[in-house]
Amino acid sequence: MDRTDYASALRRDGARMAEAAVDLTARVAGCPEWDVAELLRHTGQVHRFWTRIADGSVTDPSDNVATASPADAELAGWLAKGVERCAATLERLDPELPRWTWSVQQNAGFIQRRMAQETAVHCWDALYAVGRDEPIERALAADGIDEFLHLFISGAPTADFPADGLHLHATDGPGEWLLRAVDGGWQVGTEHAKGAVAVRGSASDLLLLLWQRRSADQLEVFGTAEDLAAVLAPFVRN
């Protein structure tokens, strides 16, 4: 995916997310402490934060002051305005342009991808909260699995992480990933291989599993319960 794809995805899922404003009091299963109103406020603030980083107006994240969020009745429009500004800013930037990020990837390309992925998962959160269990678009979901495995697993593997690792297999198109513990760190491959645990499902469901929106029993799993717990442990939020 390129910067145009990411900007298009951001606009699409931002618009879909605003549709959840039909019930701002609905609870958000993926973020149990929030209702839809709080989820929209969070996402709108995230868009504004990274827009200022991306356009160069803020270079030190500690200087990035949160924008006041509006009343509930204005949330959908406020979110949409932030989505468009973010997408318009990101689609014109060279992905290699140096920018601060919290990641090892310190460029605009990280922000372009992250904003599309962040919005996709929170769009799913918002729609699911109001009774719409709709998949993340397949190509974006596959890209999100790759982003997650390369950038969101921190810390050293635990001693009980199985040597053969975790194999993820998308059933709705191309996409296989093998996560293994190697020399005290993590190794991600995209070859067809046999892991200690294999999980098969749509790219959307695999991504939602990694982000703890789907439980393993909602997908096709091969492996012992003990090995499954060990391979999923690195993804669990504290």
Rank of each mutant, 00 (worst) to 15 (best):
D164W: 00
P98D: 01
I136V: 14
A163F: 05
G82N: 14
A163M: 03
A170Q: 06
H47Q: 12
K81S: 15
E74D: 15
T158I: 07
G56V: 03
R138W: 00
W177L: 08
G173F: 02
V83R: 05
L151Q: 13
R113E: 05
L93C: 08
E137K: 00
D94S: 08
A159N: 10
R132G: 07
L140F: 05
R180L: 01
S154Y: 05
E96R: 13
R138C: 01
Q112L: 08
L166P: 10
W100P: 10
E134Q: 14
A126L: 08
H122T: 12
V121R: 02
R138I: 00
G131S: 08
A159D: 15
P95V: 05
H122N: 11
I53W: 01
F49I: 02
I153T: 12
A76Q: 03
L168R: 07
S62Y: 01
M115H: 01
G165I: 11
I145E: 09
I53L: 13
H122E: 13
R85A: 14
A88F: 00
H167C: 10
P70N: 06
A156W: 00
H169N: 11
P135S: 02
P174M: 04
N64V: 04
G173S: 07
E147M: 11
A126K: 09
W177H: 08
E176Y: 00
G173N: 08
R132L: 12
G165Y: 06
